[in-house]
Design a protein around this nucleic acid. Sequence first.
DNA 1: ATTTGAACTTGAACATGTTCAACTCAGAGC
DNA 2: GCTCTGAGTTGAACATGTTCAAGTTCAAAT
Lengths: 228, 228
Amino acid sequence: MAIEAPKTRRGESSRAVILQAALDLFQERGYEATTMRAIAERAGVSLGGSYHYFPSKEHLVLEFYRHTHELHSAAIAPLLLREKDLAARLRGTMRAVIVTCEPFHAVAGSIFSTVANPSSPLNPFGAAAKPLRDEVVALYADVVRGSDARIPADVADMLPLTLWLYQMGILYFWIFDRSPGRLRTLEVIDETTDLIVRLIGLANLPVLRGSRKRVLGLMRSIVEGQIA
Amino acid sequence: MAIEAPKTRRGESSRAVILQAALDLFQERGYEATTMRAIAERAGVSLGGSYHYFPSKEHLVLEFYRHTHELHSAAIAPLLLREKDLAARLRGTMRAVIVTCEPFHAVAGSIFSTVANPSSPLNPFGAAAKPLRDEVVALYADVVRGSDARIPADVADMLPLTLWLYQMGILYFWIFDRSPGRLRTLEVIDETTDLIVRLIGLANLPVLRGSRKRVLGLMRSIVEGQIA
DNA sequence: ATTTGAACTTGAACATGTTCAACTCAGAGC
DNA sequence: GCTCTGAGTTGAACATGTTCAAGTTCAAAT
């Protein structure tokens, strides 16, 4: 089920040309309106050609996702070097997600549905998605680690994974967002990142300490059981 | 796009027989493995027949959801009459969701992914799903209203919708749960319902009041924009 | 009794994702 | 130079959701 790697120079070129055609067409027409026949035609290969490199149409979308992750990662690198305030780092990172994904807003619904599909081997909690998931979680670990915020160790442990989940929530919201310039999503990001940082600050309050231990324990047990 | 209501007795019977065939087959084979041809054959109508009553295969799934909702609703009615403690009401309600849906566990993944697809007309935030969504939210309003918990008015306003969302989260977890008797999901339910009730109790703490206002304001604005 | 028309039914036709057996071709081994 | 192997390629065939023009039924209107 893994994406097949080409073994010759000819194969490399075919794979690249098919992927490019697919990405272009997805952007031009959206996922559903792009047929495998159209991809084959634009790539100059025959209908069955794509299936030598990509097990399904959805796998082409996954490559799309990997691509945006790389764009996003590059986009926030300067910010992560410069900024030390956690709220600012997180806000900048989330805003960059939206900005990076904006050209693909029309396609995003299909990407998300692929990713959310529990019976798909591609779903984000499964083994096949682990490499990409680890990369994204590592990015959020970097967001947290590079800040000057003082965070209790148990909270810091769970935070990257929690932020990865938070990012998926924001993306799901963004998909539905029809406001001009996705202003609504940006507002929600500003508000929620601020709230998250504030909540982390409150985590040491004596009244909350009991709940905090329980929440973290619960999350740990969920992670161990489901994501591993 | 609405589901067509039959206008004659003959039509009523056709619609019922098609729906029953679909529900049976979904349970037996899952959503994807059930073809429209198989539904037509079992219902004793021709291929195109379903489309007179249901605009698409997905709309048949919506009826499936309605069906389980009615089972669930009936199952918890006695509890909601008897029990006054909010934590117990919520815990019982959530446990009943799992018990009610258990026969469909094998099928739930493919159905969930279909419904979670943002571009599907059936996705839970869309217009087509509004009647059913309203019913489920009303059920959670009942869970809250019938309890003896003292809940701030602004929190109580948002609580039913929040619990509806929470239920979807639990169901998503449950889909992945492979533990015997779904014990893990039941544990998570016990833990989270308790946490939710505790959090509501904490909502009046002065340190949390500011965040509470902001969280509720945010949720209100999201609901207005997306769900309406 | 006949006519009418809306509701209902039919199944061939269509679009599209996917499969696969047959074919092409470049390069490694001799 | 020849052969052989396996990667790469092809396109017809298949499965399945959906459409729709044509046909059928039946109860109310005439």
